[in-house]
């Protein structure tokens, strides 16, 4: 029973990877989006050396908008290509949701890697505590993906999908964003790990709560 669940999750995940590699629709357009965003940031700040505090905010703006561009597509594409019925037949809601969540996680991690590399190269952003910084970024990403996936599932059934996504996701993501921006700021300034234990606790519990609630509610979104 348990292995069947994992197997189906793997199948959904691999199916998304495969269809993404075939069309490269999301990854291509998102990489261009990242490039454009970071170029705009570069042109906006010119040759000036911004403080790292401000740069952290800009970094998260780039992360948030590029992630929302990609993540909102997950379920919309199933509806557009009319493949959702076939998907429903092959796997249970929890399996589909977990598979999609994993795919989105991989997508955002790849994307954020590019954002971070480009961002550091272009703006001269310095990270004084790289280990902590990575952990904070990863936790932030997981939360971003978890909340976005359930909202992407909700909007896939609605009419004005594109405009609805930022409207619905913003209030849900705000607690995460406020915490993670603050934590990233502190980590890049080289603070000691134990001093942001509170932020860690919030991030971890936010992720746990959102993933659990999403798994519980996804069947209601998915059924017809």
């Amino acid at each position: 029973m348990k292995s069947r669940f994992l197997n189906n999750v793997k199948l959904v995940f691999l199916k998304d990877i495969r269809s993404e590699l075939r069309t490269r629709y999301v990854i291509n357009s998102l990489l261009m989006f990242v490039l454009v965003t970071i170029s705009i940031i570069r042109f906006a700040i010119g040759d000036e050396k911004l403080e790292d505090e401000l740069l952290t905010g800009l970094l998260w703006i780039a992360v948030f908008f590029s992630a929302s561009g990609g993540l909102s597509r997950t379920f919309v594409k199933e509806e557009e290509k009319e493949t959702s019925a076939a998907l429903k037949l092959t796997a249970g809601p929890a399996e589909i949701f977990t598979g999609k969540l994993l795919f989105n996680l991989v997508l955002t991690f790849v994307l954020n890697f590019f954002i971070l590399v480009l961002f550091i190269l272009i703006t001269g952003y310095t990270i004084k505590n790289p280990g902590l910084f990575m952990v904070v970024m990863s936790l932030g990403n997981i939360g971003l993906v978890a909340a976005s996936t359930i909202i992407a599932a909700i909007i896939s059934k609605a009419n004005s999908k594109g405009t609805l996504y930022p409207v619905l996701s913003f209030p849900v993501l705000l607690p995460l964003l406020l915490t993670v921006i603050n934590a990233t700021k502190l980590a890049s300034a080289g603070i000691d790990t134990k001093e942001i234990a509170g932020e860690f606790l919030i991030l971890v519990s936010y992720n746990a709560v959102v993933v659990t609630v999403s798994l519980m509610l996804f069947p209601f979104v998915w059924e017809d």
Binding site: A147, I150, I151, I154, L168, P171, V172, P175, L176, T179, I202, S205, Y206, V209, V210, V213, S214, L217, F220, V221
Partner: peptide, 12 residues
């Protein structure tokens, strides 16, 4: 579903 997701993140 949305009301629940939003309501559950509010206490943070």
């Amino acid at each position: 579903v949305y009301a629940i997701v939003a309501g559950i993140t509010m206490p943070f």
